[in-house]
């Protein structure tokens, strides 16, 4: 695994327009009404193909998505973030996407980080780029959340056998080839660990890229507590045993 130089200058302006036009940004959203519009608007300033997958939200997420997104897909029944991402990826592939980026709906990711994720794929160094908040920076990350995430990194090291600095970051980029070969079966939150497994099994080359995570009260409330993390670990291990 090689890590992209953090100082390498890849700005949104430098990213070729045709690459932007061939990139689909998949945003899974479950009850994200308050944050979604701003997130989608930011992304769409640079990437037109924004796919919002409304994962059976009970709030106004669907209406908000209809107002701002290019494509809106709706899960009639809530199936979990992993399922929503997979739905978005399949749709993007059907529509001919050459690059697929997954992006969180709660405002913790920055659209400015996307070019750095696409760069290693564009110059052939990798098929998959994973955002890492520990290579980059995480603003206002509370100590307890840092602990949970670090535990997740160690969990990944032990059970997936892959050394990463941040195993549970929703900001990722896939080449078309990688998106076709990665099929997420963990419907709920355990998909993050599952993706790492799939990367190892498919032997697709990947890189970790430093990204900045903006922690807000809103995104923190939406994130995982230590107890939630244990539940995810259980789902992941059961899935590993029986699937």
């Amino acid at each position: 695994m090689n890590q992209l130089d953090a100082n390498e200058d890849i700005s949104l302006a430098a990213l070729p327009a045709d690459v932007k036009a061939r990139t689909f940004v998949v945003i899974p959203a479950y009850n994200e009404g308050p944050a979604l519009a701003k997130v989608v608007a930011e992304v769409r300033q640079h990437f037109d193909h924004v796919v919002v997958v409304d994962d059976g939200s009970r709030d106004n997420t669907h209406a908000v998505a209809q107002d701002c997104a290019r494509y809106v897909l709706k899960h009639l029944i809530n199936r979990g973030q992993g399922a929503a991402i997979q739905t978005g990826i399949e749709f993007a592939l059907i529509r001919g996407a050459d690059f697929v980026v997954t992006f969180d709906a709660d405002g913790q990711h920055r659209v400015e980080d996307i070019p750095a994720l696409l760069a290693p794929i564009l110059n052939g160094d990798a098929e998959i780029a994973l955002g890492s908040r520990f290579l980059g920076s995480a603003t206002d990350l509370p100590a307890t959340r840092r602990l949970v995430l670090k535990a997740g990194v160690w969990f990944t090291r032990i059970f997936n056998g892959v050394r990463l600095t941040d195993a549970h970051n929703g900001l990722r980029a896939f080449s078309r080839k990688a998106a076709q070969r990665i099929h997420i079966r963990q419907d709920r939150m355990a998909h993050a660990s599952e993706i790492i497994d799939l990367i190892r099994e498919t032997e697709l080359p990947f890189v970790e890229v430093p990204v900045t995570i903006r922690y807000t009260e809103y995104s923190l409330a939406k994130g995982q507590s230590a107890r939630g993390a244990l539940r995810i670990a259980f789902h992941y291990l059961v899935g590993k045993m029986v699937d």
Binding site: V40, R44, V50, V53, G56, A65, Q66, D67, C68, A69, R70, Y71, V72, L73, K74, H75, L76, I77, R79, A83, Q86, T87, E90, F91, I94
Partner: peptide
């Protein structure tokens, strides 16, 4: 649910 979501995808409303 995925199949239905993809079949009924809405485009260009935003």
């Amino acid at each position: 649910v995925r199949h239905i979501a993809i079949l009924q995808a809405e485009e260009g409303v935003g």
